[in-house]
């Protein structure tokens, strides 16, 4: 059993929400979003500690590597493939939802963190 840890993305939530503007709000700007923003708003629901994705990966990953940010080896090409094709119970993301450029930056960011 892993020790409980605080949610690592709470600090990201404020800037994500603050980016919205009052009147007619574009819920996701077409300007490229940073990997941190994408991870917090699109990945962390499942891949943060305690998320269902983390729990599912705990069944088949080495101990301590179930959370994506704890992964020792996460090649960008693999991340890009999984995001576009889905894997296991994870549905895929379309290019209208996450552009190729954003996906590449996200995949590189994930690799650099590990």
């Amino acid at each position: 059993m892993r020790p409980e840890r605080p949610n690592r993305f709470l600090w990201l939530a404020a800037p994500v929400l603050a980016a919205a503007t009052p009147a007619a709000v574009q819920s996701a700007s077409e300007a490229a979003r940073s990997p941190e923003t994408i991870f917090a708003s699109r990945c962390a629901y499942c891949h943060d500690d305690g998320g269902w994705g983390t729990r599912a990966l705990a069944r088949r990953m080495p101990e301590g590597e179930a959370a994506l940010l704890d992964r020792v080896n996460l090649p960008p090409a693999y991340t890009a493939f999984v995001v576009r094709r889905g894997i296991g119970a994870m549905p895929q993301f379309t290019p209208a939802e996450l552009t190729d450029e954003e996906l590449e930056a996200l995949a590189n960011w994930l690799e650099d963190r590990n």
Binding site: A20, A24, V25, S27, A28, Y45
Partner: peptide, 30 residues
């Protein structure tokens, strides 16, 4: 998906107007 504006949230009338690309995540955040 790119048509994702939340056009109106009317606190007095209890209504909203949205476009198709607004997810429940987006709407709750707003």
């Amino acid at each position: 998906k790119r048509m994702n504006r939340i056009l109106e949230i009317d606190e007095e009338m209890g209504t909203a107007v949205v476009e198709p690309g607004v997810s429940f995540f987006d709407f709750k955040a707003e």
